[in-house]
Amino acid sequence: MKVVTANRLIDGEVVFWKAGQWVERFADAELFTEAEPGEAAVAVGKGQPKVIVEPYLIDVVESGSGLAPVSYRERIRALGPTNEPTHGKQAEGGAAIEALQHASGAARSSGRLDLIRRK
């Protein structure tokens, strides 16, 4: 499963593709189970240089508490910096944010290193 992400040109905000729009919440991102439509969305994004910078596909998985990006880096992009829990997207709180935070916790804890693997 994949999601398309980028940074918005004007302010650098992390955004996700949702049916032709760029949205700020990971939870609202459009999920691609097939390669082709995801790549098509990236191509559309590349044609919008005045809106976003460098669109790309990321892998997401079912993490136990909901969908989460596979890589640690993408989880931090979807949440905000872990040293400042009130900064960035995570400040909003709520179930979807908590699920993501939980997913990252699961990925880090020793003994369960194989739970989430980057491709």
Binding site: L9, E13, P49, K50, V53, R77
Partner: peptide, 28 residues
């Protein structure tokens, strides 16, 4: 010029970097 689309990101990136402006994970 970047916001107006006259400069591409490839052209603009070295220019913004010469003024210390990076695009990081969450913002510039």
């Amino acid at each position: 010029r970047r916001l107006a689309g006259e400069l591409s990101e490839d052209q603009f990136k070295p220019l913004r970097l010469m003024n210390g402006l990076y695009l990081q994970l969450h913002a510039y």
